[in-house]
Design a protein around this nucleic acid. Structure first.
Length: 286
DNA sequence: CACCACCCCTGGACGC
DNA sequence: TGCGTCCAGGGGTGGT
């Protein structure tokens, strides 16, 4: 389940393989994963890739039409739960017709023979096409909150003050802060000793500052470790992450808390499986 | 506007 | 071995 650290690793690895290359052809196997125009030129055919951007959990391939450098193109990719975007170099595809990877919905072929494949078995992800970066921001990224790596305590304080919600559902809300998912919210709340059901309203600026520091540190550490591979996440080169080995609560229900040795509890919060330490993360805090 | 329940989807775990 | 059932979960949508 790609969250910010995983998506950032996909972004970096894809940048290596894509930036500066030109898209020679695009193949769409499932039209319904593409939102907006699925015409090959709108899916970057004939474009030179200028950059790979990220906001929260979303990626965007920014291209410039080769025949007219003024014409921009932009393809936004959301990996959802089970999506992956991998660049497979020509030499790794070998000579013979390798059996196709199931659920490969869109394939781009670059001028050096590299294939970029969007694979998404559960189809919780998708692809959105835009004329340029303005459209991307207007129609898709503007509604999102600030990216979790750059958000400042002040904006979080503002959001927290006008919501009645608990911390966990608020932090999972991409319109409030973009990039956190179930894994990193649980890890974050454990790190800063906050109960998932703490009402956002009750957090002082001081505690929000600590929360933001914790969040950046956690996300940076996880990113450096290549992200978390819980089931099948891999980056743009097919490499798994290893931050799952450093998880302190996620996936550890019933095991003992690394701080106080009490058993970790699992409870449904905001409809999501939530693991926390009832000892360290008391409601009301300390 | 704020919030929540519901639904989308597949593969893996588990029980018989 | 094989089949059925349950569950995970991001986020869009529609209802309250």
């Amino acid at each position: 389940m790609p969250e910010l650290p995983e998506v950032e690793n996909v972004r970096r690895s894809l940048s290596d393989a894509l930036v500066g290359r030109t898209v020679e052809s695009v193949r769409v196997r499932r039209r319904d994963v593409v939102h907006g125009s699925a015409r090959p030129p709108d899916l970057l055919r004939g474009c030179r890739i200028r950059s790979v951007r990220r906001h929260g959990k979303q990626l965007a391939l920014m291209g410039a039409a080769a025949h007219d450098r003024q014409v921009d193109r932009c393809v936004c990719v959301h990996l959802g739960m089970s999506g992956s975007l991998q660049a497979v170099p020509a030499h790794r595809r070998g000579g013979g017709p390798a059996r196709p990877v199931p659920h490969t919905h869109v394939t781009w072929t670059l001028d050096d023979g590299t294939q970029v494949r969007f694979v998404d078995p559960r189809r919780f992800g998708g692809i959105w096409t835009f004329a340029d970066s303005n459209e991307l921001v207007q129609h898709r990224w503007r509604a999102l909150g600030e990216d979790a790596l750059v958000i400042r305590p002040g904006s979080l304080l503002q959001s927290f003050q006008r919501t009645q919600r608990a911390l966990k559902p608020a932090l999972l809300d991409q319109n409030l802060v973009a990039g956190l998912g179930n894994i990193y919210v649980d890890e974050l709340l454990f790190n800063c000793r906050l109960h998932p059901l703490t009402p956002c309203r009750t957090l002082t600026l001081n505690r929000i500052q600590a929360l933001v520091r914790c969040m950046r540190q956690l996300l940076h550490r996880a990113t450096r470790c290549g992200g978390s591979t819980v089931r099948d996440y891999v980056d743009g080169h097919g490499r798994p992450g290893h931050f799952q080995n450093a998880h302190q609560v996620y996936g550890r229900a019933g095991q003992s808390c690394v701080r106080c040795r009490k058993p970790l509890r699992r409870q449904i919060v905001a409809g999501r499986g939530t693991v926390f330490c009832p000892g360290c993360q008391a409601l009301g805090g300390r």
